[in-house]
């Protein structure tokens, strides 16, 4: 078990290096000059040269790459142009907000998805199945972009139950979490249903029924755990979608997280900050995928290969 974790952890290094390199390449190799983008097409050549020098862009590419990686190892992502502060400090200040939102969104997704998927999977073909799955596909199709404003209209502006924007207590978290979690809930519910339907006829289920368990008990006690593996792996795959959701949701609800910071940085042409945000997002995604793999092996003993 320990060896499995260590090996997975060691496998993280090359992927992280790949992601860091891709982020670097995005800024430096893609046509289009970040300095001209920052200063405008009509900037004086002197200013452009000064800015290039300030950002270290006038040095040879390999040298820039090495110092970028070196800085990365020390936790130094350069200095923000618009905030005049270290990028690392800015991101560290916003990271908890994004994490909080993602955790809340995931919680909402699981809380909706499990009952829905279970009801549908317990009786495939029934009216309850049809209703639950109709609800699920509706949830998948409603874009965050629209669900957010819709929830705001109903629960903040009309009913006045919940705050409109910003970060604070639990009340502030409800609408953004619903916005983020709904689509994922639909996807997970569908997968759980399919997976439950798949284990219904398995031998261990027949054994559970034979020993006198009712259909519901058999499914809850034996079916669910076996049906869970694909659902967990899908949750990891959905981390990317959660990310899209979090960026859009942070903008809609003025949530002070990294997604909003990144979009602000892009709008302000603050490229060290934007690059830092992209990198942190991507690395988080890599780590989430690793955690999914580990969770996978904890749930399903069959995956536990050295």
């Amino acid at each position: 078990m320990m060896r499995f974790f260590l090996r997975r952890l060691a496998g993280l290094a090359p992927v992280a290096l790949g992601v860091a390199t891709l982020t670097f390449a995005l800024i430096h190799l893609v046509p289009g000059d970040p300095v001209i983008a920052m200063l405008g097409e009509n900037a004086a050549p002197v200013d452009i040269a000064a800015m290039r020098h300030q950002l270290g862009l006038d040095r040879p590419l390999p040298a820039q790459y090495v110092s970028y990686l070196g800085g990365l190892l020390r936790g130094d992502l350069g200095s923000s142009i618009s905030f005049h502060e270290p990028v690392t400090a800015l991101i560290a200040a916003r990271f908890p907000a994004t994490l909080e939102l993602a955790a809340a969104g995931l919680t909402v997704a699981v809380l909706i998805a499990f009952p829905l998927g279970f009801i549908a999977g317990a009786r495939p073909g029934s009216a309850a199945d049809f209703g639950a799955m109709a609800f699920a596909i509706l949830g998948i199709s409603v874009p965050h972009l629209y669900l957010g404003p819709l929830l705001m209209i109903v629960f903040s502006l009309r009913l006045g139950w919940l705050p409109l924007t910003g970060r604070g207590g639990l009340a502030h978290l409800v609408l953004p979490a619903l916005t983020m979690g709904t689509a994922m809930a639909g996807i997970l519910a569908r997968m759980l249903r399919q997976s439950l339907a798949g284990v219904r006829d398995a031998d261990f289920m027949r054994a559970a029924r034979a020993k006198g368990l009712g259909e519901f008990h058999a499914l809850a006690a034996h079916g669910l755990r076996n049906a869970l593996t694909p659902v967990v792996s899908l949750m990891g795959l959905q981390a990317g979608a959660l990310l899209t959701g979090s960026i859009v949701t942070e903008i809609i609800f003025s949530w002070p997280g990294i997604g909003r910071l990144m979009i602000e940085a892009i709008a302000a042409r603050d490229y060290p900050l934007a690059q830092g945000c992209v990198l942190v997002f991507a690395l988080t995604y890599v780590v989430v995928n690793l955690l999914t793999d580990i969770a996978y092996s904890l749930i399903d003993p069959r995956v536990r290969l050295g």
Partner: peptide, 18 residues
């Protein structure tokens, strides 16, 4: 490596640069 990089982030970064 590209799949390890969240797609929407790639699109946002490219759209911002291009």
């Amino acid at each position: 490596v590209l799949l390890a990089f969240p797609g929407i982030l790639l699109a946002i970064a490219l759209a911002a640069i291009l």
